[in-house]
Design a protein around this nucleic acid. Sequence first.
DNA 1: CCCCTTTCGGCACTGGGTGCCATAACCTCG
DNA 2: CGAGGTTATGGCACCCAGTGCCGAAAGGGG
Lengths: 201, 201
Amino acid sequence: MTAARGAGERDLGGRPAVTTAHELAAVAQRLFLERGFERTSIDDIAAAAGIGRRTFFRYFRAKVDVLFAESASELEVLRRELASACEGEDYRTALVRGVTTALRVAPGDREWALQRAQLILSVPALQAQAAVVFAGWRSIATEYVAGRFPGEDLFARAAGHAVLAATLAAHEHWITHPGSELEDALRDVLVLLLPREPVER
Amino acid sequence: MTAARGAGERDLGGRPAVTTAHELAAVAQRLFLERGFERTSIDDIAAAAGIGRRTFFRYFRAKVDVLFAESASELEVLRRELASACEGEDYRTALVRGVTTALRVAPGDREWALQRAQLILSVPALQAQAAVVFAGWRSIATEYVAGRFPGEDLFARAAGHAVLAATLAAHEHWITHPGSELEDALRDVLVLLLPREPVER
DNA sequence: CCCCTTTCGGCACTGGGTGCCATAACCTCG
DNA sequence: CGAGGTTATGGCACCCAGTGCCGAAAGGGG
């Protein structure tokens, strides 16, 4: 299922992969920007990347997944940051740090990330997929909050959704104010939306 | 495009519609519960409803739309409630009233609505569609808040997302605690997530 | 009975996604 | 160098969602 052997694995021989998920995603994103998401077929992407249509599906399970290639590693960063939060820390501080760290973009990737955000927030099919991907984020955040405040079921769920809502709102703000910093909006909205800690019992 | 003449329109003759969107949705939801969403094809639904496959698409634009047939009218209720809110009212009070009114289910539809919520929150394709449908909710709420607090761009956006997040969190809570009242969870989470009014300037 | 209107539904087609499988390309070992 | 193992490729056939086209069905009024 996994095309392109991971960098860590030993090379036991075998036919080398002809491209990488990252490269393929770059080709696809360029086409999406040029012709639009709907008007770009898998055949177009495969042809532009010089691979077969069937091979495309070895790198991505679906057309919409192309723009979410790095979501898994971002999610891993969030999980790690939350796991390393100390006990006494305000849970909101920990979440703000986790989310901003996970979503930090390298300066060279800024333009690229901005275009990606614009695509995702403007194409319905991609908005829809974003909701599914971000369900993973929500899950991590909810688990963390539930661990901090056992028994506060509804509170944890609300906080998890708040993380997701803040992420989306911040991205929207970012693409309508491209000069601003995503991280600033992210912090501001998280502080606005994350509820205060529930009273101790 | 619109099958099944609206109730208000005069009957000018023409072949009568063979079913209604509501009836078709009921048939489809039953099949989804029995066999699962993915394993139920449009052909299955059409056959069970006694119509042609092509006709299905005159009632719904897509398979996923079947479970969101009433979203448009719910959205209209929210808009109306917000429009009728008086000036001095706390914006959060108005939003709580609008959302709970729009999502109130008739006692006889409770079981039905619960099953629908379970389907939507458990099937990825339906979660995804929910995000697109709820973008309309968000938009209404954001506009309302932006009207109340001009210039508070990020605040309005955050509040809009909070409404959506609260709606989802409340539904999740509802399906894991089927005995509870959706309206209660809805109110609680909205109060948790909606940020305080920004300082006057 | 004819005309007008509206819905129905078959047919063919595009495009996303999958299972199957032969084959290409690279490894190591003899 | 050649054989055997390993892995990625990509063609083919297939299923399903969704659409444009269009003739036919089923009602009304003149």
